[in-house]
Each structure stands twice: as structure tokens, then as C-alpha cells.
Design a protein around this nucleic acid. Structure first.
Ligand SMILES: [Mn+2]
Ligand SMILES: [Mn+2]
Ligand SMILES: [Zn+2]
Ligand SMILES: [Zn+2]
Lengths: 160, 160
DNA sequence: TCCAATTTTGTAATAATTACAATTTTGTAA
DNA sequence: TTACAAAATTGTAATTATTACAAAATTGGA
């Protein structure tokens, strides 16, 4: 609990207040986790990461918090793989890469300012997502030749 | 059952054989549906569309078929919204737009040949997806002002 | 302090997908 | 054609992420 941590918490609270979200303990901790860890966690990963810190935490609260954040545009939802939404508090435009072997999701800068063509001028575009799937350097090194069959996610059982 | 239909079926069977997939009745009908209807159906929509035609059809067979197609690259999976995978047999590079009001998914041509930057040169990229979310012209006309809160999919009950 | 509004929690319900074993269908060799 | 193994299909049950909902706890201001 040094001054630095204190400062960051103040910033987070201010950020939430700016969006008319009451900065409850859970909300602050969820947002802090997302800002500190750019690992695009699932709701369940968030729960696991915070349950020690907040012993009374429930999964529903994580979902509630994320829904609030989504509604106010504090986080965005990444549906890069089916069956597991991931969440991102970094709001600058960027794309997401998922490794089909280790499942890790990382950021990258998309080349183009927008991928939407003029043919969509009758549409209102609210969000733009660019997702890549493939193999990360680590997994290439450790044996993957990159020619495996399409990765099929197994439903990933909650870790314990 | 005109000659045209016959012809198309032959093409589909040839396509499957070329991928070493035995062209069973279900597989041919699923692929035919996907080629005839570019509506990016969910597994359940496919089931509903074909169950009259194949009275003994089971949902598991739809899933089995789609998994086979995915493994051989005959279709691609669209995870533009969480909780409902959609499938596309059109393999040319294109992006997908989902209307947050009516849920319709449509194709568009992405501007850029690739959105992947040079910074990913240590990665092997197998797939590239561009997803847009917003409002389609129809839904804009019929009242949506485009400033609604983020669309949150409700789990969409199987249409009876 | 007190109270209404908000947040959090626990539990049950929902629904997409998968696991799996039984049944049916199919290709082919005899 | 017949027989049989391999492949495909089916039905059912299990899994699991998410949502619904009502009760309990917390909170901010009067
Ligand atoms: Mn990100
Ligand atoms: Mn498409
Ligand atoms: Zn990896
Ligand atoms: Zn629409």
C-alpha cells in the first residue's frame, strides 16, 4: 500500500466516477486488474485472480461488474473464441492475436485506420474488431510446426 | 430436382471428395445450405433449416458435420458474438458486420489486404477476422438512433 | 443515526456445446 | 449378392459459461 498504489487507486476511482459508476471495492479491483494485467482475462480468470483478495467475492459480482463496465464503455468484450468472453480495459484501437496452441491473447497495432469500406456508408459502426489466429513464437519454438489441424477449443474447465 | 440442382449437388460432392470428406447426405445438405444461404447460420439455425428435409436429423450430427468441415477448412467459424458460433462456407477474404438490433450478420470487403503489422513477423498467422458491430440501414430507419447502450445479447432461446 | 437506493451474494435456471455409447449406413472384398 | 469392418448418425446425458432473481449486505446522504 505505498503512495504509488494509492495514486493509481485514486485515478481508477476518478475514472469510474467520470462514467457515473460508483467506485465500489469490487469495481475498483476489477478495473485495476484489467489495467495492470493486459492479459484479456475471462470472467472466471478475473474471479480466480481476485477471490483471495476479496474472500466474499461471487462470480455473479464479476459478471455484474463487467456488464456495468460494458454498458458505460469502460471495457470492451473480446469474442475471439467461442464460449469464453474476454475483457479489455485498454480502449485504444488495437487488434488481438490468439495462439491456437497456448491460448494466449496478445495485442497488436492494426495497420489500417479502419477496415470498413465505403460500401457500408448506410451503416452505423459502433465497434471494429480485428482478430488473428495462429501460433505465437514460443509455441512455434516448442514444437508446433504451424500445420496442425484447426485448433478446436475444448471447453476449458474452471481451473479446480 | 432439375438438372441445375443436380449439377450443384455434383459440384458439392466433388468439393467434399477433394477434401477427403465422404459426401454423406447430411454433409452435402449442410454445405449446400451454407453455399445457397449466405446468412452465417448458427448450428441451431442449420438444424432448423434441415430438419424437415431430413426427418431423422439430430443436432449432434450438425455439430459433427461442422467440426469435420472446420478441420478440413471447408467452412470457417465466426465468433462475432459470444455464445453463438456461426458458420460460413464462403472462403474468400471478407469481413463481417453484425447489427446490434436485429442480429443480422452480413459480409463486406475489407479495405486492407492484411491488417497484421510487421511486428508480428515471429508469429504464424492462420486466420484473420474483421468484425464490425453497429446498426444496419433497416434498423436505423425503424427507430434506432444509434446511441443505445451497448447491445447485450440475451441468450437466444431456440426458436421453439 | 436512519433509510432508501445500490451493490453484492447464493442459488437455480438456461442454453450451447461436447462426450459417449448404441445404432444405422456404407464401401468393398470375397 | 453377401458379409463385415469402418464410418456416420443418433439419442441422451454431461459440461459449463452466463443469466435470472430474490435475499442480504452495504452505502451515501438526510
Ligand atoms: Mn487488448
Ligand atoms: Mn461471410
Ligand atoms: Zn502460444
Ligand atoms: Zn439490423
Amino acid at each position: 500500500m505505498d503512495g504509488n498504489t494509492d495514486n493509481k487507486e485514486k485515478e481508477i476511482k476518478a475514472l469510474l466516477k467520470g462514467k457515473k459508476i460508483r467506485p465500489s471495492i469490487i469495481r475498483v479491483k476489477v478495473l485495476k486488474y484489467l489495467l495492470d494485467n493486459r492479459n484479456h482475462p475471462t470472467a472466471d480468470r478475473l474471479f480466480s485472480a481476485l477471490e483471495n483478495d476479496i474472500p466474499t467475492l461471487s462470480r455473479t459480482s464479476i459478471y455484474n461488474t463487467l456488464k456495468t463496465f460494458l454498458d458505460e464503455g469502460v471495457v470492451s468484450e473480446i469474442t475471439i473464441e467461442d464460449g469464453n468472453s474476454r475483457y479489455d480495459a485498454f480502449t485504444g484501437k488495437h487488434g488481438h492475436f490468439i495462439c491456437e496452441k497456448c491460448g494466449g491473447v496478445s495485442d497488436f497495432d492494426v495497420k489500417c485506420a479502419t477496415c470498413a469500406p465505403e460500401s457500408l456508408n448506410g451503416y452505423k459502426i459502433n465497434q471494429e474488431h480485428v482478430y488473428l489466429r495462429g501460433l505465437c513464437p514460443n509455441c512455434i519454438k516448442s514444437g508446433g510446426d504451424g500445420n496442425e489441424k484447426n485448433f478446436r477449443k475444448k471447453r476449458c474447465k474452471k481451473s479446480s
